[in-house]
């Protein structure tokens, strides 16, 4: 097994570890930090079902963004929807046999690659062309778009420019998953290294490594956002007058009892 293969195997184990632990740690923090006050942006749903519906519209159709900025919505939604299809397409490398629905969407994955590029370029152009957005952009904002764009382009390159032995590559991925490692395609003796594949994989690992530390946390963040996920029911309504009906954080209750004993 070549040094390059070993390096990539280690890279992916490391990246996966950082990604999973980092993500769970951040989500754990969100989940355990209390929301001491009812702050849904109103009008808000009056029950849990309504909240699920509200979040569905936000997550799937970016409803608030649609209301606020049509161009950002267009490019942003294109990019995210395409990303979703591409991720589904890539499941073929991780499953054996490949699930039927994943088989079905394979052709759309390629179109999605182009759509995602257009979306990302559109978003990036806005970072330069709109003075307001330019003002709030820092290097990491550009970097994130460039990184994603480079991942897409290197992925498309493997389809159209550099031939990649995807059967061998799938064996490599399944090997990583089952801890029975095999060589990365293009690293064997006498084989020409597949630069597009190496770049693509490296950038994906970088993305996984920085995900938990970056603004990409907006994805889980949305589900923990009190202005969107809270039910509009703070008022002491008829029949809801017990202490249990109060929305109070533990730290607030603790300070209440301290206040009482102090008086």
């Amino acid at each position: 097994m070549s040094a390059l293969t070993i390096a990539y195997i280690l890279l992916f184990y490391g990246a996966a570890l950082v990604f999973v632990i980092g993500l769970f740690y951040r989500i754990f923090k969100y989940a355990t930090t209390p929301a001491p006050l009812k702050i849904p942006t109103t009008p808000a749903p009056l029950n849990q079902r309504g909240v699920v519906f509200r979040l569905f519209w936000e997550v799937v159709f970016f409803r608030s963004l649609f209301r606020s900025a049509k161009w950002i919505w267009l490019f942003g939604w294109m990019f995210h929807l395409a990303l979703f299809v591409i991720v589904l397409r890539h499941l073929r490398y991780f499953t054996d046999p490949v699930w039927a629905p994943i088989e079905l969407i394979q052709p759309f994955g390629i179109y999605a690659g182009f759509v995602m590029s257009v979306g990302l370029i559109g978003l990036w152009v806005r970072r330069f062309s709109v003075a307001r957005v330019r003002y709030v952009s820092v290097i990491s904002d550009h970097f994130m778009l460039v990184l994603l764009l480079a991942i897409v382009v290197s992925g498309l390159a493997m389809k159209y420019v550099v031939h990649t032995d995807i059967v061998a590559f799938k064996t490599f991925i399944l090997g990583i998953m089952s801890f029975q490692w095999v060589s990365l395609p293009g690293t064997g003796a006498g084989e020409a290294p597949n630069v597009a594949l190496l770049i693509h994989l490296f950038l994906v690992a970088v993305l996984m490594l920085i995900f938990p530390f970056s603004k990409l946390m907006h994805a889980p963040g949305l589900f923990f956002c009190p202005t969107r996920n809270q039910i509009d029911n703070p008022r002491a309504e008829r029949g809801l007058r017990s202490h249990e009906s109060r929305h109070v954080a533990q730290w607030a209750l603790d300070s209440e009892s301290v206040g009482k004993s102090g008086v």
Partner: peptide, 22 residues
């Protein structure tokens, strides 16, 4: 940051999309 989930989530979530700027 330990008392308000809103603050913690809001500080992490912004992607600088620019929708709020106007």
């Amino acid at each position: 940051l330990g008392k308000y989930r809103s603050l913690r989530v809001f500080l992490d979530s912004c992607v600088k999309c620019g929708a709020c700027t106007d």
